[in-house]
């Protein structure tokens, strides 16, 4: 699934480690989400959306 996590993270000036710490996941998880190798669970997707103050649909593209 395509997503804008990397774009949103870089816009905030955060490293993958910074984002991982805020989401309480590993840096590996953040990297796997950004590269599309892993789709987050619904609770994690909601935490990501809340952190970036966007809707899930604005961050994740299910058609991708």
């Amino acid at each position: 699934m395509n997503n804008r996590v990397r774009e949103l993270r870089e816009a905030k000036g955060w490293s993958q480690g910074d984002l991982a710490a805020q989401l309480a996941v590993s840096r590996q998880t953040v990297n796997a989400i950004e590269t599309g190798k892993y789709d987050p669970s619904l609770p994690l997707a909601f935490r990501i959306a809340k952190l970036f103050r966007k809707t899930i649909e604005a961050i994740f593209d299910p058609e991708g």
Partner: peptide, 8 residues
Amino acid sequence: VTDELRQR
């Protein structure tokens, strides 16, 4: 106690 990706 590990995160969801690690559990997968």
